[in-house]
């Protein structure tokens, strides 16, 4: 079981968290027919990266914070975690 470093609570077992998927901001003007491809990309095409991935985690059994983590998908090294504001 890996450890996730909650920016509020510190390192906790991953079982306390919900994984929220890759950081993948919603496209601008998604209703525009011209953005069909961007919308499909947003919904279905995950990067599924080997390496450091920026991703969402939710501390469900803790403080209730949604935060971002940069985690290596092979070694599971969590390089940093931070609030959403810093990701903008």
């Amino acid at each position: 079981m890996i450890l996730i470093d909650c920016p509020n609570c510190g390192e906790r077992n991953v079982a306390e968290f919900r994984f929220g998927g890759e950081y993948n901001p919603r496209p601008q003007n998604p209703d525009d027919p011209a953005s069909d491809a961007a919308w499909v990309d947003y919904l279905y095409l995950k990067e599924n990266k080997l390496g450091v991935q920026k991703e969402w985690w939710y501390h469900r059994a803790g403080c209730g914070l949604w935060f971002l983590a940069e985690r290596h998908t092979k070694s599971h090294a969590v390089e940093k975690t931070y609030f959403w504001e810093a990701a903008k």
Binding site: G20, W56, L65, W66
Partner: peptide, 11 residues
Amino acid sequence: YQDIEWNLQSG
């Protein structure tokens, strides 16, 4: 509830 929180905490 968690999805509502996600939206409220991220934009």
